[in-house]
Nucleic acid binder design. Structure first.
Length: 214
DNA sequence: GACCAGGCACATC
DNA sequence: GATGTGCATGGT
């Protein structure tokens, strides 16, 4: 079976197994972007607490966070881990958002997607996965998000290796799938779902995995 | 107590 | 370009 057929086949299996995942959990594009930064190498339940904390004090707005001092912000997001560095990263992103787009994440929509991606990647603390998560889940651009689960699952099934680069993985998805925001949205969420459920690094449950034998 | 989680920057070779 | 390390909480 060719790679593009395999990738489409995997999607069918995952969707039929788990159904729609309703990603990204968040009430606004800004909340999605904040979540994308806070969830770096971190369990979502810890991030959720941090976001709820910001909401509790009605601080989940660009100019509000812009004005909070670093120490206060880091305390508010403590549950998400790496809180000192993540406070700095949030600030960097918001400085950019205010300077370039008047604090309105929706204004990013007018920008060329690849140019915007470059700009996001130039922000300290925003790497490829975070940038692509913002592009796909906050402003609905058809950019596929690669993460550790994507690499783990595809390499385990012999489609690519875990040594292959982020860009190589992403290119494979881009050329194999219909360039469709809804598809990309659902597919990445489903990969995370199957990864969390059956593809933990040390204790995978391969015999129960719906992708067994593909 | 070990292991893990929806990464990233930076140092060093 | 590849590899190693610090960052840190909370759930299992």
């Amino acid at each position: 079976m060719s790679f593009d057929k395999k990738l489409n086949n995997i999607f069918e299996i995952l969707y039929n197994t788990f159904g729609p995942q309703h990603w990204w959990p968040g009430d606004s594009p800004f909340e999605v972007a904040v979540g994308a930064i806070l969830t770096q190498n971190t369990n979502w339940s810890n991030v959720k607490k941090a976001i709820e904390n910001l909401k509790k004090y009605k601080l989940l707005e660009p100019y509000k966070i812009y004005k909070i001092d670093h120490k206060k912000l880091s305390e508010l997001i403590k549950s998400s881990g790496y809180y000192t560095i993540k406070a700095k990263r949030l600030k960097s992103f918001i400085d950019f958002l205010i300077k370039e787009y008047n604090g309105k994440i929706e204004s990013m929509n007018n920008e060329d997607t690849l140019l915007l991606r470059k700009k996001l990647l130039s922000i300290n603390g925003i790497g490829k996965e975070t940038a692509d998560s913002i592009l796909l889940y906050a402003i609905n651009k058809p950019i596929f998000v690669i993460d550790t689960y994507t690499k783990r699952i595809l390499s385990r099934h012999g489609i690519l290796t875990d040594k292959d680069s982020y860009d190589y993985y992403q290119n494979l998805f881009h050329k194999s799938l219909k360039k469709d925001v809804k598809l990309f949205n659902e597919y990445h969420a489903l990969i995370v779902k199957v990864g969390k459920t059956f593809c933990k690094s040390k204790r995978p449950l391969c015999d129960q995995c719906p992708l067994k034998g593909i």
